[in-house]
């Protein structure tokens, strides 16, 4: 376990030195710029739009970090041969895979946490710009703890994406891994559509196939409760629980697969 922690910290250090956290500056600039512009463009919907934008941006920045670092985690070690001296140390290959994963998870956690703080600060400022009258009709307060549930699920989704990127990178090139991961993310967002495929297609075989695929392919749409928290609609805790369990099992599956491939791999 300690070994996994050391490897994870090294990944975190790498991402910091590779200036991944600069994305936070981009995020803050986007948010502040948008909140200024939106005030000029639209009639009194600043808080809702900033919430929409902030949550979408957290998910998107995280997605890019998860994919582009995730695909390089293992591949870079192999390609640059730094793995040679690493694997001669008293560590097991699965510890390397899990440590790399934990390291990127830590990077994402720090990133998402900082972006969340920035979002809350902008919202707290916007809150002061409105009358009590205007605030009374908002479905949720500007500074709303409930939003953390959506951010939590976004983080979990990012962890699943990271697991995909890592899994692919154990056997394919970075370009292919990135393409596969992004494709799966898009398919995963479409997943609920697969379920009502029979409404669209004639052939029952195709409908069955689509339904079957919807069970196997990741359902990223399930992690999206942005609308619910922005409008303070009810999100049952059982939903949060099952979705979290779904994410956890999916991550475990992918990491097991990654380890299985990585365990027997030759580093020529």
């Amino acid at each position: 376990m300690a070994v996994i922690g050391h490897i994870a910290l090294n990944v975190f250090k790498e991402s910091v030195r590779d200036r991944v956290l600069y994305s936070l500056v981009a995020f803050a600039t986007l948010l502040i710029g948008a909140s200024y512009l939106i005030g000029q463009l639209t009639a009194g919907q600043d808080v809702k739009i900033i919430k929409d934008l902030g949550l979408a941006a957290i998910a998107t920045f995280g997605l890019f970090i998860a994919v582009f670092i995730g695909i390089g985690l293992v591949w870079k070690e192999v390609e640059r041969r730094s793995i040679y001296s690493l694997l001669a140390k008293p560590i097991r290959r699965h510890e390397l895979v899990l440590g790399k994963y934990a390291g990127l998870a830590l990077t994402l956690l720090v990133n998402v946490a900082m972006m969340t703080i920035a979002l809350y600060l902008v919202l707290a400022y916007l809150n002061t710009q409105f009358s009590d009258n205007a605030r009374a009709v908002w479905p949720a307060p500007a500074v709303d703890v409930g939003m953390l549930r959506a951010i939590g699920l976004i983080f979990l989704e990012l962890l699943v994406v990271t697991a995909f990127a890592l899994f692919f990178s154990t056997f394919s090139s970075p370009f292919l891994s990135a393409a596969l991961t992004f494709s799966l993310w898009i398919i995963g967002e479409f997943n609920p559509e697969l379920r009502n495929f029979e409404a669209v297609v004639e052939s029952p075989a195709a409908a069955y196939l689509a339904r079957g695929l919807s069970y196997v392919l990741p359902n990223f749409a399930a992690f999206d409760i942005k609308t619910q928290v922005v409008y303070a609609l009810p999100v049952p805790s059982s939903y949060l629980l099952t979705t979290s369990a779904y994410g956890a099992v999916y991550i475990a599956l992918l990491l097991t697969g990654a380890v299985a491939i990585f365990e027997r791999r030759d580093f020529k």
Binding site: A2, N10, K13, E14, S82, S85, L86, A88
Partner: peptide
Amino acid sequence: GYLPENPYFYDYLTAEELLDYFGSLF
């Protein structure tokens, strides 16, 4: 101990940090 041919290490680390990292793995 193992020295690979034409070794390459994490270029974002300093020599000190690299050895410290490997030491931590022991």
